[in-house]
């Protein structure tokens, strides 16, 4: 063909240029991430020790550990999932399997998408006025879990709906053709196939819940607690609010810098660990099935 050679050199040059630009942008992002992680690690690693992880804070939080904050964050993250997973999975099943296209479904889906974009401090304020004040739960783990549950609900719902939609339609057809009712097809065939993807979304939301500051500082966090919470109606410490308190209004902000970074290191490790865990699950399941 006589057009084959036309503009070939220019095309090649542009192609090379584009590759270089895109690669360096990606490299820059990676560099930012890596320097952030390195900085936190270098600054915080000296503070982290077994005592730091397992002891209560002492001397107005200038010494000792962050054990109650770790426990509080775990309670909040797990508790919020107990709320957002049942609600989110239910909504996702409805949206993906039952809802007929129409105004209502579009409204629900729009709501889910917009809810995900609401700043977390607004969720905090909402939780403060609804759970803490109106329902009278007070500043407590319960109020914090409910608030974080609502906060993560859109993430959980969207991820679960996507996972359900990705199960092949042929599974549903096969089950129905064998005389399954709609719910039987969903429960026995579609959900087992979609569950790994749904749980991956759940774990990522768990990481998000663990990393939130504003909502829990408004609804459940206490700066210092001499004991672990023994009821959902207790206040609790949390890693994020602990960092915030030490860095903004601690008794000796400069002296506790290592603790601030040490706590950050623990928090980031926790969140990254959860994300990695989710990635590993997803990768393993991708390998084990071939549809």
């Amino acid at each position: 063909m006589f057009l084959t050679g036309y503009g070939k050199a220019a095309r090649k040059r542009r192609d090379r240029l584009a590759t270089v630009v895109i690669a360096s942008l990606a490299g820059f992002v990676l560099l930012v991430l890596a320097s952030l992680m390195t900085y936190i690690f270098v600054q915080g690693v000296s503070a982290v020790s077994w005592e730091f992880l397992s002891e209560f804070p002492r001397h107005a939080m200038t010494e000792g550990g962050i054990f109650p904050a770790i426990v509080g964050t775990v309670y909040l993250a797990v508790g919020s999932m107990c709320i957002s997973i049942p609600l989110g999975f239910g909504a996702a099943i409805y949206l993906a399997e039952y809802a007929k296209p129409g105004a209502l479904v579009s409204a629900v889906r729009l709501g889910v998408a917009n809810l995900a974009g609401v700043p977390s401090v607004v969720f905090g304020l909402f939780g403060l006025s609804l759970f803490v004040t109106t329902f009278g739960f007070g500043r407590s783990l319960l109020s914090g879990c409910l608030t974080l549950g609502l906060l993560t609900l859109p993430t959980v719902t969207a991820a679960a709906e996507e996972a359900i939609r990705q199960t092949p339609a042929s599974f549903r057809e096969a089950a129905l053709a064998l005389g399954a009712s709609r719910w039987q097809a969903v429960r026995q065939v579609i959900l087992p196939a979609a569950l790994p993807g749904m749980l991956t979304g759940g774990i990522l939301a768990l990481g998000r819940a663990a990393g939130e500051t504003a909502p829990i500082s408004l609804t459940s966090a206490t700066a210092y607690s001499p004991a672990l919470p023994d009821s959902p109606f207790n206040e609790a410490m949390a890693l994020t609010t602990h960092i915030y308190n030490l860095a903004t209004n601690g008794s000796d902000i400069a002296a506790t810098r290592p603790q601030q970074f040490g706590t950050s290191l623990v928090l980031v490790t926790l969140v990254l660990g959860l994300s990695l865990f989710a990635l590993v699950i997803r990768a393993r399941l991708r390998r084990s099935r071939r549809w």
Binding site: P168, S170, F171, E173, A174, A175, A177, L178, V189, P192, A193, R289, W291
Partner: peptide, 12 residues
């Protein structure tokens, strides 16, 4: 009235 589909669709 049983049915077999275009692509093999065994359950996982």
């Amino acid at each position: 009235v049983g049915m077999v589909f275009q692509r093999p669709n065994p359950f996982p």
